[in-house]
Simulated scan of single mutants.
Amino acid sequence: MTLQNRVFPTGEIVARPFRGEWMGNRGILHDDQRRLGAARWRHKNWICCALEFRGRHRQVMRPRNYTELFFLDDATALAVGHRPCAECRNADYRRFKAVWEECFGPAFATEIDRALHLARVGRDRRQLRHRGQARDLPDGAMFVTDRVWLVWAGQAHEWHEQGYGSPTALPAADVQVLTPAPMVRVLAAGYHPQPHVSLA
């Protein structure tokens, strides 16, 4: 059974057979039959976790436990507003927090989550997007035209469910940016997400 727990960079949570390289948590979004309800989050601390940590094993979408969401890669998780987990990705979280504080000043995780939440979803509960010049976006940021793109090594890579396409030149254009504005600033200041295997 393919569960509805795969997250696209455009914010949709869909039922697809790919798992991806990272897992996320926004609280309990599913019922006892492992079906998603209307809610897309239950708290503001959206995190991105490693698939494996200290030998722990979980039954996916177990009743009355948080809904495991899956992302193709780290950049996809950042694009929808998930930060690194402070437990299973402690080194990444500390790097992220240090760069965040360089940009915005000292902050606890709850303050970071609150700021990200204001930048990732609107009052209509849909993904917030902003405008930017594609060629000014840092590596790790994602934008959308008729397709979804990742900026990596100064080029554009088309996002697919299984990985990224061949690099192409960034358009000299104003584009719709998916990655929340504070996250773009953190990326520009030096935080580097872990690259997907298809980018090697």
Rank of each mutant, 00 (worst) to 15 (best):
M1L: 13
M1H: 12
Q4E: 09
T10W: 06
G11Y: 05
G11C: 06
V14T: 12
A15P: 03
P17A: 15
F18P: 13
R19Q: 15
R19S: 15
E21F: 08
E21H: 11
M23E: 14
M23D: 09
I28S: 09
L29M: 08
Q33M: 09
Q33L: 08
R35I: 09
L36M: 15
L36C: 13
A38Q: 10
A38F: 09
R40W: 10
R40E: 12
G55M: 09
R58Q: 15
R58G: 12
M61A: 12
R62W: 14
P63H: 05
R64P: 05
N65I: 11
N65T: 15
N65M: 12
N65A: 07
E68P: 01
L69Y: 07
F70D: 01
D73P: 02
D74T: 04
A77H: 05
V80R: 04
G81S: 02
G81Y: 00
H82Q: 06
H82F: 11
R83K: 11
C85F: 11
E87Q: 15
C88Y: 09
N90L: 11
A91S: 11
R94N: 08
R95N: 08
R95W: 03
K97W: 05
W100Y: 09
W100G: 03
W100A: 00
E101N: 04
F104D: 00
F104H: 02
G105M: 01
P106G: 00
F108T: 10
T110R: 10
E111S: 06
R114K: 09
A115E: 13
L116F: 06
H117Q: 10
A119N: 10
V121A: 11
G122N: 06
G122H: 03
G122A: 07
R123P: 09
D124N: 12
D124P: 02
Q127Y: 04
Q127K: 12
R129M: 13
R131M: 14
G132P: 01
G132V: 04
G132T: 04
Q133I: 07
Q133E: 14
A134R: 00
R135H: 13
R135Q: 14
D136G: 15
D136Q: 15
D139C: 11
A141T: 07
T145R: 08
W149D: 06
L150R: 07
L150H: 07
L150A: 08
V151K: 01
V151Y: 00
W152H: 12
W152S: 06
G154L: 11
Q155D: 07
A156V: 02
E158T: 11
W159M: 06
W159P: 08
Q162R: 15
L170Q: 09
L170T: 05
P171T: 15
P171M: 14
A172S: 13
D174W: 00
V177N: 00
V177E: 02
L178R: 06
T179E: 05
A181S: 12
P182M: 03
P182A: 01
A188M: 07
A189M: 02
Y191V: 01
H192V: 05
P193H: 04
Q194L: 13
P195K: 00
